[in-house]
């Protein structure tokens, strides 16, 4: 195992790819590896991309890979697509638009299925980010599942969140709704050569909130398929990173991110502890019976199980 970590730190793509699979499959050795890798992580600028399916997230990312490679950055990408709730299978198709980059030794692209995790991301996504950081990537872009209106987890985890929209994807009221349109540090109206781009841009500019500490999220236009406007997006991403470090916002976001991760890990560990053992399994079955037969409500049963767990 230590040898796998050592290989990742030397920049071995095969080892990094293997480790990410082990994390996805929740293999016990993966946890040890993550423990060893943790102090080598936290160095990269983590940028999340969200927006409706077909807005052009993958195409924009493929262009940004090139732009940042030209600036000498090492670029990691994790592209998330949905898992079928019926078969557990998935088609991961984001690489279709990223093929040019796949042979560059300083680029690492990984497709990832959600495996039932909500929020447009997979459970393993941010552990995989740590692996890419240990591999030496200094910019990591995470593409969420084509998100609807409330898949906002990415904003809690990334340093910079890019919301990608396209013209004519909704009227003013859609844009006024809460959720995805509040989380951007950067808004991109892609396919800006299509009718309705001006209206989309001005509607966005009307509703996006002024962020704390003096960052006004810009609204940019791109035609990613032709590369138009991509340099501006890259410039603004770098500007936002500088803003985060200079304003002290980076430290605040890192702290918030650590809290989110700790809360998640605690919930997972508590659930494991209360339900994993065979005796607990039997208790759980009885508890479910009581809920189904209306003898007790869910919250009361949960409180009882927590108390019993503490006593044992």
């Amino acid at each position: 195992m230590t040898s796998l970590v050592a290989r990742v730190l030397e920049g071995d793509k095969r080892a990094a790819a293997r480790l990410i699979s082990m994390i996805e499959d929740d293999e016990p050795e993966a946890r040890n590896a993550l423990r060893a890798i943790y102090r080598h992580s936290g160095k990269a600028h983590l940028v999340g991309f969200t927006g409706p399916p077909g807005a052009g997230k993958s195409t924009l990312i493929s262009r940004l890979i090139k732009a940042f490679r030209a600036r000498g950055r090492k670029v990691g990408v994790i592209a998330v697509d949905p898992t079928s709730p019926f078969t557990g299978g998935a088609i991961l198709g984001d690489r279709v638009r990223m093929t040019d980059a796949s042979r560059d030794p300083n680029v690492f692209i990984r497709s990832m299925a959600t495996r039932g995790h909500p929020g447009g991301l997979a459970l393993a996504t941010f552990d995989a980010v740590k692996v890419l950081e240990a591999l030496g990537m200094d910019l990591v872009m995470v593409e969420t599942v084509g998100a609807g209106q409330s898949e906002v987890e990415i904003a809690k985890r990334a340093h910079t969140t890019v919301v990608v929209e396209m013209p004519a994807s909704g009227d003013e009221v859609q844009i006024l709704k809460a959720g995805i349109l509040e989380i951007g540090d950067l808004y991109v109206v892609n396919k800006a050569d299509l009718d309705g781009a001006d209206a989309m841009v001005s509607n966005l500019e009307l509703v996006i909130p002024e962020h704390s500490k003096g960052w006004r999220p810009p609204v940019l236009r791109t035609v990613a398929s032709e590369g138009t406007g991509v340099t501006d997006v890259a410039d603004e991403l770098e500007k936002h990173w500088k803003h985060l470090t200079a304003s002290g916002e980076l430290a605040a976001r890192e702290r918030a991110r650590a809290e989110t991760e700790l809360r998640g890990a605690l919930a997972e560990a508590a659930l494991q502890r209360l339900t994993a053992r065979p005796a607990s399994q039997a208790n759980l079955g009885k508890a479910i019976d009581r809920i189904v037969h209306r003898q007790s409500d869910v919250r009361t049963v949960a409180e009882e199980l927590l108390k019993a767990g503490k006593a044992s």
């Binding site: 079928s84 078969t87 299978g89 998935a90 088609i91 198709g93 690489r95 692209i109 497709s111 299925a113």
Partner: peptide, 28 residues
């Protein structure tokens, strides 16, 4: 393959053998 529960990485048309080998390694 998807309907059989597998995760299928589809890389699209006109791939060079180099692209395919590189993708296979990154995707494990």
């Amino acid at each position: 393959l998807r309907d059989a529960g597998m995760e299928v990485i589809y890389t699209g048309l006109r791939q060079s053998p180099e692209d395919i080998a590189a993708a296979a390694i990154e995707e494990d």
